[in-house]
Design a binder for these strands. Structure first.
Lengths: 240, 240
DNA sequence: CCAAAAGTGTTTCATTTACACCCATGT
DNA sequence: ACATGGGTGTAAATGAAACACTTTTGG
């Protein structure tokens, strides 16, 4: 039977926070993730993904939520299993298999995280420059999570989890632009989102800016029973 | 620390074998998977996915390959991690977390599997009718694997792993048709495959049939360094 | 010569892209 | 009034689907 083997969960939590982009010095939204500083060996002093051990009675996703709350206080608006990493020598202390989740959190909740000596936000694309080498194989894990997010926003309605209950299409477009790192045509973006059926208009608008008020939209849940299969634009959120 | 918790691997192995389709009684290629009959409790007598326990020194993918060989003798041409299932009461005997892999095998190797009292091939779409209820949550796992394969053949070059070193485009089209369960236009299929760059022509042809010989093609490996990221048509095969 | 599948060309339709233009609001 | 982004319209470009047609083999 499988002995001398530990099962952990880790989470790549992503939030869009203001930050300086690589190219120019202007302030735009940028993907950030919270890291925790390790206080014990192995890799004491280095920064790592939040995580912890799986207890016998909880679901894997529950373990991810729990360890997330314990280490950072965050409660994600979206949580999805990413991949399970289990190379024999990931940890120098013994065999550790990590089920890794990707979580998305909204900016206000992200801002509420108390930054301290051992918890901080780091820009996802410049981890090396800002916090140095990550512990374990966590740098590889972050790379993979970013790749998955960027490919997935193209076909799945997940960007809205970075935003609140209602949002303007310009805000949603801003999320896509920040994630993909490129400009999107407002007119075409509006059409493609409308065609996808991922959002529905409310009867409210957001005014206050020095221009015409923008209509507010709300995310619409996956219809589910399309052709009997799982909808192509939203893979199953919680399985097994 | 994570105690009283077992880590297993299971594999959904898929092969294209001749079989009667649901609608009419004609013989076409159909997705099949090998099942093993459980000889002990829990679920003694029921059919299940091949799998086993992870040993401390091997990679997860190696554990999948090893248990696969031990239970069925198969050596897959393609192996990819599918998902990790870990609901608390999946197994009545205690907490078991299963890292599930999807494997593709070629028809000749599939035919070499010795069918016996405790190993058999079953058509993937009619498991209930042919072998009854599967053990554990394996029916759900198979459903998810089939969904993933069917969505993935649309954008990734994986169908070729059902075929040999060289193959005709008609054979490759036959694989796609069997997986997707629908007819594809030969002319358009040829163009889309050529445009994807997933295959390259050899200077040989397959003759012997009562018609013009077909050119043989070979699968071409992912180029890798496209834009620095992982290629969109082939996610990373072995990670962590 | 004929059947049957390989392979090419063309026409049509839908989708994406680019960009011009009007609308409504705060200053 | 006018600058600014919200929102609509439209034409060109690109790509997918449908199908006619030519080529080359075995019988």
């Amino acid at each position: 039977m499988g002995a001398s083997l530990e099962l952990a969960v880790s989470t790549v939590i992503l939030a869009l926070l203001p930050g300086t982009t690589a190219g120019c010095g202007d302030e735009t939204l940028q993907l950030h993730l919270p890291l925790v500083r390790r206080t014990r060996e192995p890799f004491a002093g280095r920064w790592a993904l939040p995580g912890g051990w799986v207890t016998p009675d909880e679901r894997l996703s529950s373990a991810a939520r729990r360890t997330l709350a314990e280490t950072t206080g965050l409660r994600p608006s979206y949580l999805e299993q990413l991949y399970t990493f289990g190379a024999p020598h990931r940890s120098p202390t013994g065999r550790v298999v990590s089920v890794v989740y990707t979580a998305l959190v909204r900016a206000p909740e992200a801002a509420a995280v108390e930054i301290g000596e051992n918890v901080r936000w780091a820009p996802a694309d410049r981890l090396m420059e800002t916090v140095g080498e990550l512990a374990f194989d966590h740098a590889e894990i972050v790379d993979y999570a970013l790749w998955r997010l960027r490919t997935k926003v193209g076909y799945a309605a997940i960007a809205q989890h970075f935003l609140g209950e209602t949002f303007t299409l310009a805000e949603l477009r801003g999320v896509h632009e920040a994630v993909l790192g490129k400009h999107l045509d407002p007119a075409n973006f509006r059409r493609s989102v409308a065609a996808s059926g991922a959002v529905e208009a409310t009867d409210e608008v957001r005014s206050g800016a020095a221009h015409r008020p923008a209509r507010l939209y709300r995310a619409v849940l996956p219809p589910g029973g399309a052709t009997g299969g799982y909808p192509p634009w939203q893979s199953r959120p919680e399985l097994g």
